[in-house]
Design a protein around this nucleic acid. Structure first.
Length: 464
RNA sequence: GGCCACGUGGCGGAGUGGUUACGCAGCGGACUGCAAAUCCGCGUACGGGGGUUCGAUUCCCUCCGUGGCCUCCA
């Protein structure tokens, strides 16, 4: 490598769920830093909780690209397009269609909605966005490997992963096997050898999507939930890679099972070196759920706020902390963003100010980074602020459009306003404060707010 | 029940073994004919109780509270 591309850059530290400590990040290959993040299951509009990992890991992606070079980072975020919820949705929405066609419609439409949402949130496209249904072959290969090595077995046309075959299963979630078995509240399927065993492949029911099964199973089948991520990360990032991210709720069982599948299939001690998990989101102090009626989609929020405000609001809390999503918070975020863009030079080259970069390099300390943004606003150059905002994924266009749209429509005669202002200046020159104040009040009633500037001029702006 | 997080000033939210986070709101001041805008300044916080320490918000124990996972879930 010609010189050290990272010279002068801060050391990146990331909290690793696997070790429960903040560690210095050292990629397997600095020329190809590899990150996998669990993406959405496409059956409905994404909610604001779904937006959190997408925004957080987008920021990490931007940071990695800055530290290692745009062409030296490979970011994979999958689309899960095979799932019972998708099937149910498809049957409900398109009752007249064959199920497979209905499913295609649902997943296609949902994926498009998701992409629209992310664009509004300022999220970059990952380098690869693989779909589960396009990686069935890889899944089958993995399953065959696992069966061949004794880590999986066939029972009643299912393939199950044998958890006891992996002695250190549970390391990520820190759940020793015996405890889990003791505390298991699950109905154990009779064909499981062990209560903890999980499904890699299952037979498709009549009318469900199905693919040729592995391991000599005759009927068509479909994959279990966990195998797809092992297959897609393998295909696009290799047997071992640097970072695997997702929501904290995925630690168990999803990520634990991914690790089991990948490590046992490749006889490896490691799937990903760094495991990162974002905290959960609540809405106005309550858990978000459909039954409480506080279930908010990204799309609903975008009707009221520019995506950049949602993005800033998300980043005001450190990614590992729980976040309480509130209207008050959104209002504060909007205000801060307006201040930033009022103070920033437009179309600045995307480049993080050193203090912001340092904050981000410390396990994505975005609240600290935002504090530095305020410092830049007050003390540093407009270009530094503008460049940093651009680096962080903020653009002012939607914000400005939003400001214009929410401003009360002014139906005033500009010539009249200018005339009244001139009239008031004359009154003030004559120290006729009563007349001056009357004119100001009258214009304010029309939505025109006057400002007497230090240089003696008077300007106006729409009343806020 | 088991496991894992979290509890910071009015609110949001970083961080640290001993000096200021930062933002919003509030208050005071400057400026102004009065305002608006702007600028300056101010509050003196770390859930309760023990312990370690010269010293703890920061480490340990414990209690209380909140949330999450253990079943699909960002």
């Amino acid at each position: 490598m010609p010189g050290d591309v990272r010279a002068g850059l801060p050391e990146l530290k990331l909290y690793n769920t696997l070790t429960r400590t903040k560690e210095s990040f050292a990629p397997i290959d600095p020329a190809s830093v590899r990150m996998y993040v669990c993406g959405p299951t496409v059956y409905d509009f994404a909610h604001i909780g779904n937006a959190r990992p997408v925004i957080v890991f987008d920021l990490l992606y931007r940071l990695l690209r800055h530290l290692y070079g745009v062409d030296h980072v490979r970011y994979v975020r999958n689309i899960t397009d095979v799932d019972d919820k998708i099937n149910a949705r498809a049957a409900a929405e398109h009752p007249g269609l064959p199920l497979n066609e209905a499913i295609a419609r649902v997943t296609f439409a949902t994926e498009a909605q998701f992409h629209d949402d992310l664009e509004a949130l300022g999220v970059l496209h990952p380098d690869v966005e693989p779909r589960a249904t396009e990686h069935i072959a890889e899944m089958r290969t993995l399953i065959e490997k696992l069966v061949a090595s004794g880590h999986a077995y066939v029972a009643e046309d299912h393939v199950l992963f044998s958890v006891p075959s992996m002695p250190d299963y549970g390391a990520l979630s820190r759940r020793p096997l015996d405890e889990m078995i003791a505390g298991a509240r699950v109905d154990v399927a009779p064909y499981k050898r062990d209560a903890m065993d999980f499904v890699l492949w299952k037979p498709s029911k009549e009318g469900e999507p199905g693919w040729p099964s592995p391991a000599g199973i005759a009927p068509l089948g479909r994959p279990g939930w966990h195998i797809e991520c092992s297959a897609m990360s393998w295909r696009h990032l290799g047997e071992t890679f640097d970072i695997h991210g997702g929501g904290i709720d995925l630690i168990f069982p999803h990520h634990e099972n991914e690790i089991a599948q990948s490590r046992c299939a490749f006889h490896s001690g490691v799937m990903a070196h760094t495991w990162m998990h974002n905290g959960f989101l609540q809405v106005e102090g309550e858990k978000m759920s459909k039954s409480l009626g506080n279930f908010i989609t990204i799309r609903q929020l975008l009707a009221d706020w520019p995506g950049d405000v949602l993005r800033l609001n998300m980043l005001r809390t450190h990614y590992r902390q729980p976040i309480d999503w509130t209207l008050k918070g959104l209002e504060e975020s909007a205000k801060a963003l307006e201040q930033f863009f009022d103070a920033a030079a437009p179309d600045a080259y995307p480049r993080p100010a050193p203090a912001v970069l340092e904050a981000l390099a410390d396990d994505l300390n975005t609240p600290k980074a935002i504090a530095e943004l305020h410092a830049l606003k007050d003390h540093a150059g407009k270009k530094a602020l503008g460049g940093t905002l651009a680096f962080l994924g903020f653009t002012d266009g939607p914000l400005r459009a939003w400001q214009a749209a929410k401003a009360p429509a002014l139906d005033v005669d500009l010539t009249m306003v200018e005339a009244r202002i001139a009239e008031r200046i004359e009154a003030r020159r004559n120290r006729d404060w009563a007349a001056s104040d009357r004119i100001r009040d009258e214009l304010l009633a029309l939505g025109v707010a006057l400002k007497d500037n230090k240089d003696g001029t008077t300007t106006w702006e729409p009343k806020r």
